[in-house]
Design a protein around this nucleic acid. Structure first.
Lengths: 141, 141
DNA sequence: GTAATTGCAAATACTTTGCCACGTA
DNA sequence: TACGTGGCAAAGTATTTGCAATTAC
């Protein structure tokens, strides 16, 4: 089984969260997803649908976010998107404004230098960034 | 008076919108703002508060967005942020997760090359991007 | 005159919370 | 046992729409 899941659950334990079935399934679901997911998607997903209530998923995401294990993204839609933060991983996204498809971009992220520069010049702490490209995919054009 | 305002109103006219007081004030307000604004901020702003209803501002923003004159951004908060699109202008933002302050970044945007690359490789049309940096500002730290 | 625009109120959509029962450590 | 967690239902916040009245062209 995926060692990253174990690792992530461990991080949760260290953050003081209890190891519940719902927590494990949530992490598993988020990790398997190639892209960020909304609360509704998560709560309705195969793994979580009959596992727990939407409020539970909401509160889990809240806790994970507070502890820096997950992050809440904007991604333009009405609903918030969530993604797990895996040390050493970072993704920018390409989003179709027609069909709403979201995919992670493989190319190396070109903004780390600017990020460093901003950190130095402004004194901001805990800096991170979000980069999304929007457009109309070939199918929708 | 600011020629960009006239120019923008003109673009609206060409898009088929009628020249109303509310439209002008909305454009004026958005252009004067150094950062994107929410519907609530706009509808409650000095210029628009007693000029028109929030629903009107909402629909104006909707039309402007449809015609590519304004754009709806994510910016992480619960409410959507709007900004006018002025030809030749582009901004990335630095946002404090503590106090919520938003400021435009002056440094040149480092992602245009990647944007071109994505356009070529994926065949996406009307590509544009959004880049935001999040962190805790010196005051909040 | 005609079609776009507006105000007001009502309907949605998604998120967030209260409260008490339950399960993990 | 104690405190984090979970379910269910209700409340909150921001967005979106219906419709009749109004206004720009």
């Amino acid at each position: 089984m995926n060692p990253i899941i174990q690792e992530t659950v461990e991080r949760c334990r260290k953050a003081g969260l209890r190891r519940t079935k719902a927590l494990e399934e949530l992490i598993r679901t988020l990790l398997e997803s190639a892209r960020p997911m909304t609360l509704a998607e998560l709560a309705g997903s195969e793994r979580l649908a009959d596992q727990c209530d939407k409020a539970t998923v909401f509160r889990l995401l809240q806790r994970l976010t507070e502890h820096g294990i997950a992050r809440r993204l904007g991604l333009h839609e009405r609903a918030a998107y969530f993604t797990l933060l895996v040390p050493g991983r970072h993704s920018d996204y390409l989003i179709c404004t027609g069909c709403g498809s979201i995919e992670a971009i493989k190319a190396p992220c070109p903004v780390h230098e600017l990020e460093d520069e901003i950190r130095e010049k402004t004194g901001f702490r805990n800096l991170y960034h979000e980069l999304e490209f929007f457009g109309v995919c070939p199918k929708c054009a």
